[in-house]
Design a protein around this nucleic acid. Structure first.
Lengths: 157, 157
DNA sequence: ATACTATTGTTGTAAATGCAACATATTTTT
DNA sequence: AAAAATATGTTGCATTTACAACAATAGTAT
């Protein structure tokens, strides 16, 4: 879409639109992949499990910040993962506060690796037409953009 | 987060995570701004109205593709905009098909300009710390990335 | 010491969202 | 001409999501 003579930035020309569009698509594709593979897990549960696997002993609120959900929904996702036996939860303290920490189980790790092996080549193929240097640059710029945004937003997770 | 020796790409290191994180934040900030300014419109309605203003006579399905909603929710957004008198809807044909087209009203245009003037400087300030060339490059790379994704996803709007 | 505030997790609820099913009309196929 | 397929918009529903309120605990202030 061309910008009009008045040089006004319209929604579909904005960086926000491009971000949302791409993010939306990426989520839809991943979700479709998870459904097609008939995995015993949603993509949100996968994201949580992967994060737990490299952050052993993380508490719920910290996990929530990683997986971009609020505390309520993070708790629900963990209920599901625990019920399936992929994680264990235990009470512990962090800064003298009682928190619920968690760790991945043997079964959880096995499941995680199984899923990884199934989706790896598929997801890699998505960026094969894009210069890896470009992908890297986008990721870096987005990160610094995000740091700026975080200063402005009122976030309360 | 550091990558582990096995060089496995984890969720929080992925381009998808960065996209979703940034997109989420941007949406939250814009939404907070709309609430704070006590505008008679949601940000989704604004996006629709802005798109209609530069695509006079667009039909609902085409608008849905622009504003990234499905047909059902696009219809609901338009109901609201029509009820507030910001757009008019009329039956017309496109490729010999009956479609509902729409156009912005005088009041709608007035409201749109009012909102633009209120949010313009605010939204511009969000990227002031980022090199405009970087923003541009990100937008371009994302667009080509999105084109690739669209080939893979099963989209049915 | 008592009251206030802050942190963490859970529950409840209202709104947003996507998806399937439907209604209508038109094109294509047989 | 009849049947099947396609395009468009609407309705209903089940899921997701955000947000506020709450419970429990611990630090801080008066």
């Amino acid at each position: 879409m061309k910008t009009k003579p008045d040089c006004k930035i319209h929604y579909t020309d904005s960086i926000y639109y491009e971000l949302e569009q791409t993010s939306r698509l990426m989520k839809k594709i991943t979700s479709q992949l998870f459904t097609k593979l008939e995995l015993d897990m949603t993509m949100d549960e996968y994201a949580a499990l992967d994060t737990i696997s490299i952050n052993a002993g993380i508490c719920q609120r910290d996990l929530a910040k990683f997986i971009l959900k609020d505390r309520a929904n993070t708790g629900r996702i963990l209920d599901s993962l625990e019920q399936k036996g992929f994680i264990t939860r235990f009470i512990d303290t962090k800064n003298n506060r009682l928190v619920k920490k968690m760790g991945i189980t043997e079964n959880g790790l096995k499941e995680l690796n199984m899923i990884d092996s199934k989706i790896e080549t598929y997801l890699k193929s998505l960026t094969r037409k894009i210069d890896p240097a470009d992908v890297d640059r986008v990721q870096k710029t987005l990160k610094s953009f995000r740091i700026e945004l975080e200063k402005v937003a009122e976030i309360n997770i």
